[in-house]
Amino acid sequence: MSVLEVAGLRTHFFTRAGVVKAVDGVDFTLQRGEVMGLVGESGSGKTVTGFSILGLVDPPGRIVGGSIRYRGEELVGAPDERLRELRGNRIAMIFQDPMMTLNPVLRIDTQMVEAIQAHERVPKKAAWERARDGLGQVGIPSPEERLRAYPHQLSGGMRQRVTIAIAFLNAPELIIADEPTTALDVTIQAQIIYQAQKVCRERGAAMIWITHDLAVVAGLADRICVMYAGRIVEAGPTDDVIDRPLHPYTVGLLGSVPSANKRGQRLNQIPGMTPNMLALPKGCAFRERCARAGDACLAEPGITEPAAGRALRCFHPHGIEVPA
């Protein structure tokens, strides 16, 4: 059975200026131990998708439609207490900015022990030992000492390791990692990715790695979903999507990644700006920035399956000539 099935998920924010359709029809399935990269620009709805799964969408936001099934159990509309039981226990999340995610006035051990005791009746000492072992597993030297520290006494990379350790404390089946390396130095990035991947493999946990950096997921994910303006516009196995992108937006994203064999050349950029989520263009949301757009794009593209295991929302995919 798949760990997670998301179908037709729609999460909207009812602001004074209007309704922001942050997530507007997202579908994907995650198998046990699978790593999925969720890629897109800022504001494309990646993070909101993550929070929707955890049931942590705050007002004025609300899940207005679709279903999220964890091991077949419907989470949309599930009681708060049930969601709390799953959070941090079966489904855990790692946040973007390690400087902000740990409570500045509580010691590391307090923040780790409480995460265990929220889900299990464990004596404090046993929980403390589990926390210590957890820190060891993410490569933190002298974990006993670190447990007694306050967050501000640790470096950014160290803090992100701590949050990863917290996420894995209760051996969850699903980890949602929301750009966990964006705020870190490049050298630390690689270590964090390595640690997260390693713990994931060891525990057989599935992972959703949210990022705007295709280069990061290329080496990490089994499958990639590309999100644009609240929808998944292209999905497929990582190698297929990277080698043969179909959606013009994916092509644009790949073109803007710097690499060694493009040295000296100008990087391609996607023309235009990220769309205003309050006033999305009719039809395909990418239409106004797309060189291949035609009259057909005034209608909303449905999901097609151009090849086995791949999904696409586009009338004029790459590799197929634009009809005149």
Partner: peptide
């Protein structure tokens, strides 16, 4: 973020508000 993270850990509301 630390409040959201505390909730993401599955802490009870009482603890999130009373401590964090």
């Amino acid at each position: 973020d630390y409040i959201k993270f505390a909730r993401a850990k599955g802490l009870r509301t009482r603890r999130v508000i009373g401590v964090h």
